[in-house]
Amino acid sequence: MNNSIWTFANPHNFMRLSGVVAPWAAALAAITLAIGLGWSLFATPPDYQQKETIKIFFIHVPAAMMAVNIYAVMVIASLIGLIRSHPVSHLVAKAAAPIGAAFTLVAIITGALWGQPMWGAWWVWDARLTSVLILLFFYLGYLALWNAIEDPVKAADLASILCLVGSLFAFMSRYAVEFWNTLHQGASLSLDKESHVADVYYAPLLVMILGVYLLFIALLMVGVRTEIRARRLRALRIAQIGQADAALTRTAAAGNPASAQ
């Protein structure tokens, strides 16, 4: 029972675990990213086709991967949150969303900066680019729903429903966009790099991917810790307001019996 993963669904246990994991993940992320950036920027040869712009991939590919993976993390966390109603699970999904949106934005910007010299345009309505843009909309909608609803318990459940419905439609959009793209545009220079990446680029890319995973874990842990504390703060404040209200009515009743009626 003590070894079960559900132990960490308890906010108290989660705080203890994350307090240990967060600094380690942050330190490892810093080291890994420093190695990965140095390696990929200064120790890789230019590609014969893409020349030096290959260096953009070392940030673009991990960011695009995380954009999708973090949404998957949110879907799983939302599902667990809805089914087992663990508050920490909802908070994991909530804390993951801004991180995912940031990775998505980085993927889009670096993609545009790669596209300009290679395709001659900042933006083309390529199936992949369009899908990533759509993913950004899903992140923004999810965050907006959390912000719009005051009651955190309702917000958590509603956002989870949105996340699950959204995941179905994000999936469908991905295939719809591919279908749309192949019918109405010629094939553009493929962004499909995983399949034909040479070994010289593959190793530093792996280091970068490991680095962004560690960065995500560190940020997620800190974010969830903040959310747990914010919720406790809210509960305390509500309790205090309740006490203050009770005290006010008591003094009012004592001082002026007529006004208390």
């Binding site: 940030i59 940031a102 670096t110 790669w114």
Partner: peptide
């Protein structure tokens, strides 16, 4: 080389976004 501006731009934008995210996370925390 000739594409330096795009590479600097990519890494500059990425560092700005992640830097902002990290600072925001720590500040809020």
């Amino acid at each position: 080389g000739p594409y330096a501006a795009y590479i600097y731009g990519s890494y500059g934008a990425s560092f700005a976004i992640f830097g902002g995210l990290i600072l925001w996370t720590l500040h809020r925390n």
